[in-house]
Amino acid sequence: MNIFRLAGDMTHLMSVLVLLLKIHTIKSCAGISLKTQELYALVFATRYLDIFTDFISVYNTIMKLIFLGSSFSIVWYMRRHKLVRRSYDKEQDTFRHFFLVLPCLLLALVMNEKFTFKEVMWAFSLYLEAVAILPQLVLLQRTKNIDNLTGQYVFLLGAYRAFYIFNWIYRYFTEPHYVHWITWISGLVQTLLYADFFYYYFNSWKNNVKLHLPA
């Protein structure tokens, strides 16, 4: 464990807590893409298949349970909770996330570290996580005024993977044989997808104006 990875995990945890806070306290999911939340639930489900077979550490297991539990409960809230689901913007959240899942699955079947079920699922979860934010970014561009919690949620979600990139650089130089091209390239693509969001988020913070993404 290094400081970059810990910072990344804590930032990721905060993004989830901000979203749960928003949904649980003000019973609203306005501006949140259900498609992205479903993709994230799938990402964790396919990435943490080994949660009960490969014990890494208590920390690792607890964090996996938190991410699995929170992502599925957010999907449940947005689909089932009578108050929350009313604030879900069904008409605007129209990204066909199936067209993200299929290419990631095909790519994982071709590009993986080892052609086993677990490794293919691992690669699939990395490719899918890289593009999972797209429905949310599209929804943000359609949503006229983005509320602070939603902006903070997306910002933290992007920042966590940026910390992971520093973690991979650190581990590459400190651990022999630590090479995971699939993870590195997926993580880099994922962070780059946030680039323009970061740009507008930083500007709105600097000029102290409401965050607004150009259509």
Partner: peptide
């Protein structure tokens, strides 16, 4: 053979 290192990151 080297035990395949389980993926230790989240």
């Amino acid at each position: 053979d080297q035990e395949r290192a389980a993926h230790d990151e989240l």
